[in-house]
Simulated assay, not measured.
Amino acid sequence: MADESGFAEPSSERIDHLKKIIGRAYDSVEWSSLDLVPAEDSVADVFKWRGDQATVPYFRVSHRGRRYTSPEMGLGEFSIHFLFWILEQYADQADLTLLLDEPDAFLPPRGVRSLLASLQDFCLRNKWTLVLSTHSEEMIDAAIEHEAFVLLRVDDRGVTEIVDTATAPEVAAEVLPGLPMDRVLFVEDEVAAIVLSAAIRAVDARLLSQVEIVWGNGQGYMRELLKRLPRRPAPRIRFGFVFDGDQRAVPLDTGAGWPVAYLPTDREPDDVLRSVKSELLEHAASFGTTPKQMSVFFDTIEGENSHDWVIKVGDRYERRRVLPTLAAIWADGHGEECRALVEELS
């Protein structure tokens, strides 16, 4: 039947997509459309595509001198040929919505990103909208990177919640495993560690699993480590030194050459936290008080320097909760500075 119907070779571009996704350097690829009519009308309707006649695809490929056809293909290989054969049936039609349910289900991991890129390319060229469901870490990671990921989940009441990374980037940390820890970052003190952690979380919460943040009592120990900590080529664990912003103008002895960065702004971290005190009033209820009572307390410590101000706010409203809240408020309002720091650390 295939010989009677005839074989056609897909475009060279389509063959390139197949090769990348499936991972096989085909010698040849041929597709045929067979006029087969399933016995059940409901099944036949599914295979009518854009016409009145049910049509079933049949594939023939050659790889490393061996020719084989659809029934001999693995499910992953066959599903990709089938998917792109279907797309070809509608290639001349614009403004369609393509809905795909786990198209990567039978593919090896390395083919997943190529599949997504090929689908995006096809849909962009044809002005289609692409929506797909997936459990693939590769595909989710790529979607998160481009703020195109949407998480659907059912809450305790049975209501479906919709969360997208464009408005809630932290959702990435919920659905993807943490990255392996491969770097240690030294900072001056606890407040610096809190600010650095908030800045990283604001950009990509998963990156925190890569990092161990170590803090001490001021920048003196960091300067000694920076001079003396040896560095070998291609270290498995990398070290970095993140000084407070007010240390930018102070000369450094970089010793073994470990990288140095600075927290955002040219101020010390205590000043950074204090700068968003008015916005903390909106969170007063979570600290067991009211905005008015919190505002009155702030008035009583107005004359304190920033270091003592942070200590007293921490003592009053539970340090391990209120200081990260202040840092998160600041980071949320200073996305560009946070991204610049994370890029520098990367």
Rank of each mutant, 00 (worst) to 15 (best):
R231W: 08
D164A: 10
P177K: 12
R232T: 09
R248C: 05
K227N: 06
A192D: 09
I200S: 03
L263A: 05
P169C: 13
P235A: 13
V242E: 06
P180A: 10
P169K: 11
V260S: 12
V187G: 00
D253A: 15
P180K: 14
D244Q: 07
A199K: 02
A193Q: 02
L252T: 04
G216C: 01
I237E: 06
M222E: 05
G257A: 11
E188A: 05
R236N: 09
L226M: 10
F186W: 10
L226F: 01
D246R: 00
V187K: 01
G220S: 10
I194W: 01
A166C: 05
M181D: 00
R248P: 14
V214K: 03
V260Y: 02
R201C: 03
L229R: 13
I200K: 00
A198R: 00
P251T: 14
R201F: 08
D246K: 03
A172D: 03
A193E: 02
A256F: 15
W258Q: 15
L229K: 14
E188V: 02
D204R: 05
R248D: 03
S209D: 03
G255A: 07
G240P: 15
I162Q: 12
Q210H: 07
R232Q: 12
L229A: 08
L229I: 07
R228W: 07
A199L: 06
T254K: 13
V203N: 02
A198S: 04
V250K: 15
I213G: 05
A199Q: 04
I194F: 00
E212H: 01
Y262V: 09
L252Q: 09
V175L: 10
V163R: 11
A199W: 00
L225M: 05
G218V: 05
F243M: 04
I213R: 00
V203G: 00
G216Y: 01
Q219S: 12
L196H: 02
A205H: 09
W258E: 11
G220L: 08
F243W: 01
V250A: 14
V191G: 01
A256M: 13
G245F: 13
R231F: 11
L196F: 01
P235E: 11
W215T: 00
V250Y: 07
L185C: 07
P251K: 15
A173I: 01
F241L: 09
V171K: 03
R238T: 13
L252E: 09
D253S: 14
Q210S: 08
A168F: 13
M222I: 01
Q247E: 15
D182C: 10
D244G: 03
R232F: 15
L196S: 01
P251A: 12
W215A: 06
A173R: 12
S209Y: 07
E174G: 00
Y221C: 02
P230Q: 07
A193L: 03
R231K: 15
T254V: 15
P264Q: 08
T167H: 11
V187Y: 05
D253T: 11
V260A: 10
Y221E: 04
G240H: 04
R183C: 11
D164I: 05
E224H: 12
V242C: 10
A166G: 07
